[in-house]
Design a protein around this nucleic acid. Sequence first.
DNA 1: TCTGGGGTCCTAGGACCC
DNA 2: TCTGGGGTCCTAGGACCC
Length: 573
Amino acid sequence: MRTAPTILHLDMDAFYASAEQASKPSLRGKAVVVGGLGPRGVVATASYEARVFGVHSAMPMGQARRLAPNAAYLVPRFGFYRSISEQVMALLRALSPLVEPLSLDEAFVDLEAGERAWDAESARRVGVRLRADIRAVTGLTGSVGLAASKMLAKIASEQAKPDGLVLIQPGSERALLGPLSVRTLPGVGPATGDHLRRAGIHTVEELAEAGEDELVRLVGKAHGHALYAMALAHDERPVVAERGAKSVSVEDTYDVDIHDRLRVGLEVQRLADRCVRRLRGAGLSGRTIVLKVRRYDFSTLTRSETLRGPTDDPAVVREAAARLLDAVDTTGGVRLLGVGVSGLADYTQEDLFAQAAGAPVELPAEEPADAPAEVRPAPTERHWRSGNDVRHERYGHGWVQGSGLGRVTVRFETPDSAPGRVRTFRVDDPGLEPADPLPLVTRRPGGPVGSPGAGPSPTGPADAGPAGTAPTGWPGGPRSGDGGVAGAAGPVREHADADVSGAVPGDPGAPGEYRASAGAAGARRAPAGADGAVGSGSARGAGAPGQESSEPEPASLPKSRSGTCGPMDTSSP
DNA sequence: TCTGGGGTCCTAGGACCC
DNA sequence: TCTGGGGTCCTAGGACCC
């Protein structure tokens, strides 16, 4: 294992929820829950304000609504998050060729490979500057862990949350790990945790004391060896860039169980097409087709079939999936169906045959999102999804706060505006149209293109030009208006980095405005006066079409299955 | 209002081959 | 002709992660 803490782990704080708060000024400092809004939805991310109520990832949405009835509930906008993620990953790649993304909001970086750091001090400097650059470029905060191994860097970033940096000094690893719960270790989930607990093993120290043979006996060969190594803080896994995909899959959970066998078959065909579309989009083909069925009682089964050669032919995948379905009993109903392809290759033998035979390989078009207006179905509540951006010919840019009863409620605000007003329209209002998200950080007018409005980091942007990294995937380019994102403007502070080595996890005593209140820990504070924009929260019906709410507070709409935003929180901190 | 969607890795049994 | 021992592939399920 290396002797310097030069493996960096970055984890963005409450990423989806923070991105929504940065995009929507009226949500800053408030409980925000991002996830599926249907009857079977779960929480993807809860803002720190929502976590105060006990809301957390993977929790059923119904439970979240009971715990935090006044939170704002939004559907995830992955395209938006991906564009932010690309900006962050570009900053990381400027540090090292060895960047290993784990998800949209998380990655390992080998700083030694990038010759950016060789000891604790240089590593810490890189981490401090990275956090500043991330905030300058995206307006969001991320937590950084630095250590001599991937496992410890990840544990460090977890301890740094939110909005902090923790460096684990080489030599202190075992002392630091010892008292921690076994559940802290990556790979120890509920099942393994219970298993170990029943064997009297609660802490990492007890794991090490149990010995390797005992652990292998308890949890199996691979897991046992891995667990013992982790308990001794041994982790030699290298940071690996470019890990090719091993499978591609799509699945849908239905709001209501499907009983009709015919309908089940049709859904499987649709999923097969969607899966192939994704496969082709990635330039891949695969040999093994997998069908997944979750029954009414939540029991899940998979059936798979391996072809003689890889394919990306929708007809071939459809037929295989249909054959697999034939062998499955669906009486009682199914709640989820999925189709996947594994055994991936980046060429396809069957395609060569198909081309040789002159057989066209066609895929039905996806939903006609880009179809001309006259072909598109008329807008309905479902068309205006909670949280999505819209533009009104008269009122400008805003986002859907809720819809129902033929009306859609829009809050007109932009990332760099004050919290905005709410107006209600008919769902088929001709002046209203869907819009792309706006950049979270505004460019200074007249400034160099790509210069962050929030100002440069104390040490300036990293050499490869993070500040020169234009936001990808956003239309519009430079926009007028000065100042950065509210709360991110002004000098970038590094207060949270003060508690570097040997930091106390989640030390609330760290000075600085971002930890000013426990409830808002890590959340960017709304600008002064924002609080005044939120009124009594009295439940108001949607106004008449086109009518402006008399108060800037959100109007409350009746719940509808199209996903209404509840009245926005007035009770959260 | 009880449980998403996209992945990874491991285990274990049987087939099959040498 | 009473019976081995690997290795690899396929299939099914489960734990875990974000």
